[in-house]
């Protein structure tokens, strides 16, 4: 036995030496392996991102010469640009919707799916379908359904809900944003559900048995076993929702493009218009910096709250 152990140790040392030798010999190889990916990403993503930060201080149309104007763009954002205010409020509404509705829906459905015996896989696969489909196409499909003359309204009229059938889902400035959010939620909640379901299935079954032995009912089981068991996933979903709520673009752009009358304008669509319709690249860059800044601030706020609420165990 002892002898055997000694041999293993000796072998390990020899092997390590060999590895170290290999390392010295081939120390340039790892860099050759990693650099292609790094260089591509650095040139197309990181470097331009840094230039966005710099160019936010310039007046620039994207083609000609840029003039340095200091914080002029930011002053304009906060004093002259009324749309920015609408956009930020809409992004906040978006955040309020998506931090509640899909998470609650996803959670409830995940709990139920985790407790049925037959058909778990089937439900999981179907609920996930909307997430796989292109946002642009899904947005246009629902735009067709929400068409005031030929869409779902025809059906509502026929079954007698005429007042509901008169609703301009995308044309009424008061409800257009919620109509778009409804569609985005349709596409998004299944993804959240699958995340939760995956986490629930990882919870140790022994814990449930222990809870049952202690006489816990289903509600207590939920509060004391299921939710604590999937805390990291909840924290992950919250962080993702918070950041992404300020970055969302596709559905709004495809369905309303910020209209009617800027009522569904969000930061992303406003940036897009400034950069590619008005050719105010410098100003758009300043808006990008603002957008990323808000994301970052909310990210840290969320992390702080999560930590205080004990949502994250470590890091």
């Amino acid at each position: 036995m002892n002898n055997n152990l000694g041999q293993t140790a000796l072998f390990a040392i020899m092997r390590n030496k060999k590895v170290i030798n290999n390392m010295k010999k081939t120390s340039i190889i790892p860099y050759l392996f990693i650099l292609p990916a790094f260089i591509i990403h650095f040139c197309i993503v990181t470097l331009p991102s840094l230039s966005t930060l710099a160019m936010s201080l310039f007046e620039w149309n994207g083609i000609g010469n840029a003039t340095f104007i200091g914080f002029g763009n930011f002053t304009e954002i906060f004093t002259e640009d009324n749309v920015v205010k609408i956009a930020i409020i809409n992004n906040l509404k978006w955040l309020a919707i998506f931090i509640t509705v899909p998470i609650i829906m996803g959670f409830i459905v995940a709990i139920i799916v985790s407790r049925i015996i037959k058909g778990q896989m089937f439900f999981r696969v179907v609920y996930f379908i909307p997430y796989v489909i292109s946002a642009a196409v899904a947005g246009k499909i629902f735009t067709a359904y929400m068409n005031p003359y030929y869409g779902i309204n025809v059906f509502l009229d026929k079954i007698g809900l005429t007042s509901l059938g008169d609703t301009l889902w995308l044309g009424n400035p008061k409800i257009a944003l919620y109509s778009v959010a409804f569609v985005d939620n349709w596409h998004w909640w299944g993804f959240v559900m699958v995340l939760f379901l995956g986490a629930l299935q990882q919870v140790d079954p022994v814990l449930y048995e222990a809870a049952r032995v202690d006489g816990a009912n289903r509600i207590r089981e939920l509060l004391h076993v299921s939710i604590p068991g999937i805390k990291p996933t909840i924290a992950f979903v919250l962080i993702m929702t918070v950041m992404w709520s300020f970055l969302t673009f596709d559905y709004v752009y495809v369905m309303t493009n910020g209209g009617p009358a800027n009522s569904t304008e969000i930061l992303a669509t406003w940036i897009y218009k400034n950069a590619f319709a008005k050719y105010r690249a410098g100003y758009a860059n300043a808006l990008c910096v603002l957008q990323s800044g808000i994301c970052l601030v909310f990210y840290f706020v969320q992390r702080y709250i999560s930590k205080k609420g004990g949502m994250e165990d470590e890091d």
Binding site: M23, T46, P48, S49, A284
Partner: peptide, 27 residues
């Protein structure tokens, strides 16, 4: 593979995941 800047590159790609497209689409 073991090399000096492995930690740096790993961290780089972790940060890179969350860079929003709008930060670099204009440039």
């Amino acid at each position: 593979l073991h090399f000096k800047m492995r930690g740096f590159f790993t961290a780089y790609f972790f940060v890179a995941i969350s860079l929003p497209g709008f930060l670099y689409i204009v440039p």
